[in-house]
Amino acid sequence: MNDLHSTARFSDRVDDYVRYRPDYPSALLDWLQREQGIDAGWRVADIGAGTGISSKMFLDAGYHVTAVEPNAPMRAAAEQWLHAYDGFKAVAGTADATGLAGASMDLVTVAQAFHWFDEKATRHEFARILRPRGLAAIWWNSRRLTGTRFLEGYEALLQTYGTDYTSVAERYADDARMRAWFGAGYRGSASFEHGQRLDFDALRGRLMSSSYAPQAGHPKHEPMLHALRELFDACAERGTISFDYDTRIFAGHLA
């Protein structure tokens, strides 16, 4: 999405992204293998791979992964982190112009990045690079907005201090929209509980990894961190808070 400079807006947040963004639950890969029939012989294209969090999940399970990422600092971070895996390769490309050969992939994955993509152009490109009856799987960690004092306070903090939080948050697709995107090839969805236990430094880093968190020098930056400290102190148990998610995945064919 050019209006939000989606391919560049994380460039100055890479260190926090690497250290503090959550991974994905092992149950997600179990579901893909058990319910969707994928296995380690499948060639994976991880689109919008960022720093490689989702790529690592597949690499650890023995898959070969091509990470497609347009942001050079994030792609470099992935290469530095994952270079020891023989099955890993990172390339510059976007969701609608991956640069990958036609019918060259068995599985196309998108973790957390789908809301930045042009959905129509992306679907056409994924269909092009997938082999016949290949699978696309799209998922994200959806932060819980209610249920605990911390979760509700954190959402209020973002509403108050986030630079473009509302416009970014509204880009997440709901179930009906994802089913429509897959169309007749839709194969199923699942949801898994996930979370992080964070001390204050990790919570601060998790916040600052978000593209809508104002950076140092912005008039909202210091007030935001002060509010975060107050929220943490009010909610922490034994020096940490629980940052809770529901990890939602959708899978299907695109032919």
Rank of each mutant, 00 (worst) to 15 (best):
V108I: 11
V110T: 13
V110L: 05
A111I: 10
A111W: 04
Q112V: 06
H115N: 07
H115R: 14
H115C: 09
W116Y: 13
W116T: 13
K120I: 15
K120T: 12
A121Y: 06
T122L: 00
R123D: 05
R123C: 06
H124E: 12
H124D: 11
E125C: 00
F126W: 12
R128A: 01
L130P: 07
L130N: 07
R131Y: 04
R131W: 05
L135G: 01
L135S: 02
A136F: 08
A137F: 08
I138Q: 02
W139E: 06
R143P: 03
R144H: 14
L145M: 13
T146P: 01
T148W: 06
R149C: 05
R149F: 03
L151H: 11
G153M: 09
E155A: 15
A156C: 07
L157E: 03
Q159W: 13
T160C: 10
T160F: 04
Y161G: 11
G162F: 00
G162Y: 01
T163W: 01
Y165E: 02
S167M: 08
A169S: 14
A169Q: 12
Y172H: 13
Y172W: 12
A173E: 08
D175G: 02
A176M: 00
M178K: 00
M178S: 00
W181G: 01
F182D: 00
F182E: 05
Y186F: 12
R187D: 03
R187K: 10
R187F: 01
G188F: 05
A190Y: 01
S191D: 11
S191P: 01
H194A: 14
H194L: 04
Q196T: 02
Q196S: 02
Q196K: 05
Q196G: 00
R197C: 10
R197F: 13
R197V: 09
R197Q: 12
L198F: 05
F200H: 14
D201F: 03
D201A: 13
L203E: 04
L203K: 04
R204F: 08
G205C: 03
G205S: 02
L207V: 13
M208N: 13
S209M: 04
S209R: 05
S210R: 03
S211H: 07
S211A: 11
A213K: 02
A213S: 14
P214E: 08
P214N: 08
P214W: 06
P214R: 06
Q215M: 14
A216S: 12
H218S: 14
H218K: 10
K220Q: 13
H221M: 09
P223K: 08
P223N: 09
M224P: 02
M224T: 03
L225K: 03
H226Q: 11
H226I: 13
R229P: 01
F232A: 02
C235W: 06
